[in-house]
Design a protein around this nucleic acid. Structure first.
Lengths: 106, 106
DNA sequence: CAAATGCGTTAGTGGTTGCTAACGTATGTG
DNA sequence: CACATACGTTAGCAACCACTAACGCATTTG
């Protein structure tokens, strides 16, 4: 139903995942890093949780979010499936750009 | 201001990029691979072109699209910037804990 | 030359999304 | 125990997005 890559690449959520890579944090702590409200961050986190990319732990009245290893592994697999060897070759060619005009593949 | 990662990860556009990895194609040829109309495909291609991920060549009344090496290189850089070493370590740990196939989850 | 056909792009629209405002609930405080 | 405060979640809405339908333009055909 949900596309992991799309869920993960939305800019705010992407940054949330990066922040959580350093360790678990609460909604309020995380929202301190953003210009938008706690509410917005909470909703992004709930979406990430639904996608299996993060998990939550209740402690007192706080909710500590952390990355889900399995989910992040699936995300990595999806990207590797997208980034085929053809694309690797293509990008390598771009890096090897020389004064000579680049000929397309036949 | 478009976000390259978001533009590239939308499922239809992701597939378009994969198809174009095999060589240049016209709008009509590409749309043959999808369930949606030529119009939808054309718009996705225009968006990709605007993001600098593909380029077009006019020939007769056809428009041949192909991948843009530089743009795809930038895309790769963005992903590498997102996928920090912390995440690599995290996923490596997950594999060590569960050496099973990462696809099957439930 | 005029009509027909084919290719690709714009106009218009329903569904989705990310946001702020209002809320429920749990924890302090007198 | 009643009130105040803090944390996280739902209600409602403007903006966006992906799609189909209608279109313009180029090429082919009679």
């Amino acid at each position: 139903m949900v596309d992991l890559l799309e869920v993960a690449t939305e800019p705010t959520r992407r940054r949330l995942l990066q922040l959580l890579a350093h360790g678990e944090q609460t909604v309020t702590e995380l929202s301190g890093e953003f210009a938008v409200s706690r509410s917005a961050i909470s909703q992004h986190l709930l979406l990430l949780e639904g996608a299996g990319l993060v998990a939550a732990r209740k402690e007192g009245r706080n909710r500590h979010y952390r990355l889900d290893q399995a989910g992040m592994g699936r995300l990595r697999c999806l990207f590797d499936a997208f980034w085929t060897s053809e694309l690797d070759q293509l990008v390598a060619d771009a890096h090897a750009l020389r004064p000579h005009s680049p000929q397309g593949e036949s």
